[in-house]
């Protein structure tokens, strides 16, 4: 299994209600947008397919051709974050030539390798720093799903702050449980999972959840960096930190919809690098700074005498 999730800030001044999320995500007529309200508002579009026939990146550089369909969906979390997620299950093809398209349509979300390939070689290729330009580009597919949501005229485009999207590329192979997460340049993250059952339906959801929290952490680090607490005047830094408090701090909800059998992946990432530990420390820093700034203002009034 390979996939890529793009995560970004919804281009709207405030949080959007479930009803609007539902409207933005109605990508297929006659298909329901599923809406969850606990433990955090989450709406997800119906799945859509995109046809591909191209090279699959491989770590060894071997030329491997794959044909099939990419399964994608878009989602909105907390009325504030948007994700586009694409995945494919790579399988060995039954033929060494391309078949009629109806063959692939009967296998949604599957890309069949025409010829031979090794799973580990493909997983390595997919998580390369820069896969060859002509190889399968799930990121571009996911990005278009984010674009569809962001370009809605129902959004006011006055986002409280600017933030780059993150690209979370993942692979899941069969084997002894193992988790390898890597941060790369240009907001790219790669996750290589080895699981007893890499094809379980919950794997993609797990990766979407990880991508979401990685974005939150990335965004909070960036907001704190821009605010430069300690280098600029307190009220100024506090004002720059405020959007974090207003818009993202409450969105941290690790493993909200992750299947029990996959919780160990989250737990191991909590151990190292320790997502929640870092998040909590940043949250404390933001809150403390804003509190001190408020106290200073309150106290300062008395002293300055105006």
């Amino acid at each position: 299994m390979v996939g890529e999730v793009q995560t970004g800030l919804l281009q709207n001044s405030g949080e959007i209600p479930d009803s609007l999320s539902t409207e933005l995500l109605a990508l297929v007529r006659g298909e329901r947008v599923r809406v969850f309200r606990r433990p955090i508002a989450y709406a997800v579009s119906p799945d859509r397919l995109t046809g591909v026939d191209c090279h699959l990146a491989s770590a060894s550089g071997a030329r491997v051709r794959g044909v099939g369909t990419v399964l994608s969906r878009a989602s909105v979390t907390g009325g504030r974050l948007v994700q586009g997620s694409s995945q494919v299950r790579v399988t060995r093809g039954t033929s060494n030539r391309r078949l009629a398209w109806s063959h692939y349509m009967a296998r949604p979300g599957v890309v069949e390798v025409v010829g031979k390939a090794r799973a580990a070689d493909l997983a390595g290729g997919f998580t390369l720093d820069a896969p060859p330009a002509e190889s399968l580009d799930l990121g571009a597919v996911s990005a278009r799903f984010v674009d569809v949501v962001q370009s809605s005229a129902r959004l006011d485009r006055r986002a409280p702050f600017r933030m780059a999207r993150t690209r979370f590329r993942w692979t899941a192979e069969p084997g002894e449980p193992d988790v390898r997460l890597q941060l790369r340049g240009d907001n790219v993250r790669t996750l290589r999972l080895t699981l007893p059952d890499p094809f379980a339906p919950g794997v993609a959801e797990l990766c979407e959840d990880l991508a979401l929290h990685d974005w939150l952490l990335t965004a909070l680090i960036e907001i704190v960096r821009r605010a430069r607490p300690g280098s600029v005047a307190r009220p100024e830094a506090a004002a720059r930190l405020a959007p974090a408090i207003d818009h993202i701090l409450h969105l941290w909800m690790p493993a909200a919809r992750v299947q029990d059998s996959l919780l160990h992946v989250w737990e191991s990432l909590e151990h190292r690098p320790g997502f929640t530990r870092q998040w909590q420390s940043l949250v404390n820093r933001v809150r403390d700074h804003v509190t001190v700034a408020l106290l200073t203002v309150a106290g300062g009034d008395g002293r300055s005498g105006d």
């Binding site: 995109t50 046809g51 591909v52 026939d53 191209c54 090279h55 044909v67 990419v70 694409s86 391309r98 330009a133 002509e134 190889s135 399968l136 580009d137 799930l138 571009a140 597919v141």
Partner: peptide
């Protein structure tokens, strides 16, 4: 998809 369609 024609050959070379990689989703980009």
């Amino acid at each position: 998809p024609p050959v070379g369609t990689n989703g980009s």
